[in-house]
């Protein structure tokens, strides 16, 4: 199997949230990123953070279905991490101004912008979810996050039948909708 095909398989795995693929990418790339961040005014915790964010960017790309890797996965991850880290340094006003242009990188601006948008959405949803209160939160979490079926949910939550649980779920969803759009408007 060629290198390129292997990487394609790994990315497909990533889109499926496959542990082994994630682990493989971590093993192959994390040490390089940690070294980069340590050499550029960062620490190991920050390296982990940045790498995790890059993994999310990769996941977003891979799960979008239109992602075609036109460079080595290593190069792509390095480019994303580098971009993210420089951005972080600027935010922390720790940017030392040293940018080694000798590095082999690919443009990742668009990906990172898209990622930031999604990240904001994620945070808004997280906030909205945290505000709808129980049992709505657990109910929606069970149905939409954990993808449990309505019968099980009704049983777990003590509803007499799945239809009652379903009605309750929709009521909760309406509340979530209000909170979510209120926050989207506030955020904009």
């Amino acid at each position: 199997m060629s290198n390129l095909e292997q990487e394609k398989l790994v990315l497909e795995g990533l889109a499926r949230n496959d542990r082994q693929s994630i682990e493989a990418i971590y093993r192959d790339n994390y040490p390089m990123i940690q070294a980069f961040i340590l050499n550029n005014s960062g620490n190991a915790d920050e390296a982990k953070d940045i790498f995790q964010e890059a993994m999310i960017v990769l996941f977003e790309k891979a799960s979008s279905g239109v992602f075609e890797l036109n460079c080595q996965l290593k190069t792509y991850i390095y480019s994303v991490c580098r971009r993210l880290w420089l951005k972080r340094l600027q935010q922390l006003q720790r940017y030392s101004g040293q940018s080694d242009n000798m590095d082999e990188t690919v443009p990742v601006e668009e990906e990172i912008e898209a990622h930031e948008k999604r990240n904001t959405d994620f945070i808004i949803m997280e906030n909205a979810m945290s505000k709808i209160g129980e049992p709505c939160k657990s109910l929606l979490d069970a149905y939409y996050m954990q993808k449990k079926n309505m019968q099980d949910i009704a049983k777990n939550f003590g509803y007499t039948n799945a239809d009652n649980a379903k009605t309750q779920k929709y009521k909760c969803l309406m509340r979530l909708k209000k909170l979510f759009f209120a926050q989207v408007k506030n955020g904009q």
Binding site: R19, E23, Y30, K48, Q52, D121, F122, L140
Partner: peptide, 30 residues
């Protein structure tokens, strides 16, 4: 959004677990 959120959340959970595992193994020498 809920769908994406669920996906990302599940994926992040995987990332944490992998990172924890690799840290324990010493691959991510902390």
């Amino acid at each position: 959004q809920l769908d994406k959120h669920a996906e990302t959340k599940a994926y992040k959970h995987s990332l944490y677990e992998v990172a924890a595992k690799l840290t324990a193994e010493g691959v991510m020498s902390e």
